[in-house]
Amino acid sequence: MRKLSLDNLNKFFAAVAESKTIYLPVDQKDGSAKYAKWAEGTEWSNALNTVRSPKDLFFPQTEDLMEFKTEGKNIEIIDIRKESEDFVIFGVRACDVKSFEVLDRVFLSEPVDSFYASRREHAIIVALACTRPSETCFCTTFGIDATEPAGDVSAWKTDSALYLKANTEKGEAFLKSIEALTEDADTAEVDAQKTKTAEIMKKLPLADLTTDAFGGGKTEELWNNPVWDEMSQTCLGCGTCTFVCPTCQCYDIKDFNTGNGVIRYRCWDSCMYSEFTRMAHGNNRLSQKERFRQRFMHKLVYYPENNEGLFSCVGCGRCLAKCPISMNIVKVMKKIGGDK
């Protein structure tokens, strides 16, 4: 394990930034945090997590795919892909690191999404252990250890230092590149922090939430549950839950007429929207109940069914904090699981 004195933090960012773009959580004007590029003077946020998840850096909200130019009867197809360069995402929480695995299984399975794949290959993820989880956190439900985040490098922040441990070759190369700023360290301080955080994790209000009622093969059992009617009654269909969710992965591909050609782009879509997966005959989910059911069944039943039991929720709590009507996956899991 290596240790970086917090006094050297800015030197560390500067050293990394010399060769790579580095994204890290920074405070926004309204008090919340977002991922932003580091530049001289940028302050690393203390926030537990960002409103928008770091998935944006692999799967941006909008992205141009290709361009068509027409001249007479000729159509020229232009590849407008920009080459990715190496970049670092710093300070990613354990839940969000896990979300990359959920996304990988979608975008990196055949046919591989080359836009996503290129960014994934070029990214170095420096993950940060949590010490002050929020009441809305329930990563443990999905077997995620907030004190030992995955990623290319795991990091622990104490009052005076940042401890760093490489988990992958990429991570090792990264630590090597900043070796001059760090020193060898034992794990005593990190171990103490982990024990302390683990105690807090046990006391979180959602600590006893289980996935017992869910998983692959449950479609028939859960499909007609009256809970869907009841809980979707006041859902606005706004899609906030899907846009802040680190694992939501649906997108739409659209053409934009530029006047003398067409730009084909993709943008996030939401199963909560009336225009989602619209086909020639219209939308196959006509009511908000059906759309609402889709979101939770996808995360808790369909996805695990196709991915060896892996759920596509990581317990980050963003939807709990941001839904305008405070409806969320925890309420659904408890209601169906019979907890309340």
């Binding site: 926004q28 004007k29 909200q61 706004c238 906030t240 305008p324």
Partner: peptide, 29 residues
């Protein structure tokens, strides 16, 4: 500065009691 944070989730529109069009122009292909 304020609007740059917008994630275009449409919650403002969907909650607004004055926004009651059956089909919002922004949802209509």
């Amino acid at each position: 500065g304020e609007l740059s944070r917008c994630i275009r989730c449409n919650a403002c529109r969907d909650a607004c009691p004055a926004c009651t069009c059956e089909k919002c122009v922004f949802d209509n292909p």
